[in-house]
Write a protein that binds this DNA or RNA. Structure first.
Lengths: 198, 198
DNA sequence: GCACAAATAGCACGAACGGTCGTATAATCG
DNA sequence: CGATTATACGACCGTTCGTGCTATTTGTGC
């Protein structure tokens, strides 16, 4: 890896941390340059514009999410176990070292929902992809006989996302020590409600 | 009402609209002054600092929420009907004219979760209050015989909040036309899961 | 209708913002 | 080795930010 790309990665990792706490608008060239020990212009040379930097951060976030949540969960056997693995790794992601401000997608989702532009487009794609993966895993659980045949996979993904949103709110904002416990109870109830009788 | 407080209200209504779209940090004195037809210093005279302005916006938001969601829903008879009324009015609030950017509390929750200060404190209080009202209504539904006696009211409030968060995400970011439909299906399923047998 | 208070405007400030410039240093390769 | 390119620097631009201070206009009560 050349020196340039190495520096670029350091910049992105730092920017990702900042963005998870303060959002994409919280990234400022000056502070970011200080954080990685560069001058403003030195850092700026790696990206043609701030918009490009923001897009690169979004890519880095998607990549990290894939490594921390998606790929490990894929290791679980298809069916209910994999759905549960998705849930568990998703819970952990909120506290991952790479995003000290919590799940960056939660933050960006509300930050960008009314801000037209390429960053919003990229985020929408990433979020659709993830919800689609959840629905796909749900359908696999149906065909594996774990879930009932009439289960609405998209609705299940919607509900799962809801539980994680409430968890995020409860943990991050309210700092409720029961957040984790409640999220698990809610998820268990959801799984029970779609489980095939046996 | 004196001219001063009238102007102040106009400022706050405008600031509330801005904040629902871009968050508290999206409020800038200059743009806000233009929007209400005042000079920067003329507007600034109404608030001793920007922080006080932000707190006033939060108060205005809480008040609006009370008028649009809480009070009307209280008119419904206690028990499951009132819980449903809470849900319905909460759904509508997302599209209320006073908050063109959608539920401002969703926005502020992620904006402020890592920003220590009086604004965060006020938001936490307001959110706790609301979740508490939901739990209270749930308990009333239990004692009215609509919900099963073993229902966990706080968990129910958590789940309800999750559904609305997912709805918000689905509607605002993904612009999914099924958002409303999914939210209702999820809520119905939730109510069924806690309903007393009959 | 006049005096006093309330409301608003004008102006200036220091800091931080994204971004550009020419230049110097460091790494890489023939 | 030397030459060339990649990388980084410091100074600076125009703008916008929040926030003072000082006039001046506007509204209100006697």
């Amino acid at each position: 890896m050349s020196k340039g790309t190495e520096t670029r990665d350091r910049i992105l990792a730092s920017a990702l941390r900042v963005a998870s706490v303060e959002g994409l608008e919280g990234i400022t060239i000056g502070r970011l340059a200080d954080a990685v020990g560069l001058s403003k212009s030195g850092l700026f040379a790696h990206f043609k514009s701030k918009e490009e930097l923001q897009l690169a951060v979004l890519n880095a976030a998607t990549e990290a999410f894939g490594e921390v949540v998606f790929k490990p969960a894929l290791a679980a056997p298809r069916g209910e176990p994999r759905v549960r693995a998705f849930f568990e790794h998703w819970l952990e992601w909120e506290a991952h070292v790479s995003v000290p401000g919590g799940c960056i997608f939660m933050h960006l989702s509300v930050e960008l929902d009314d801000q037209e532009g390429p960053a919003r487009d990229a985020l929408v794609m990433a979020q659709r992809w993830w919800l689609d993966q959840l629905a796909r895993a749900t359908r696999l659980a149906v065909s594996a006989g774990d879930f009932r045949p009439d289960v609405d996979a998209e609705l299940f993904a919607f509900q799962m996302h809801g539980i994680l949103s409430a968890y995020y709110h409860s943990k991050r904002l309210l700092r409720d020590p029961n957040a984790n416990h409640r999220a698990r109870k809610a998820f268990d109830a959801l799984v029970v409600s779609v489980s095939a009788p046996r």
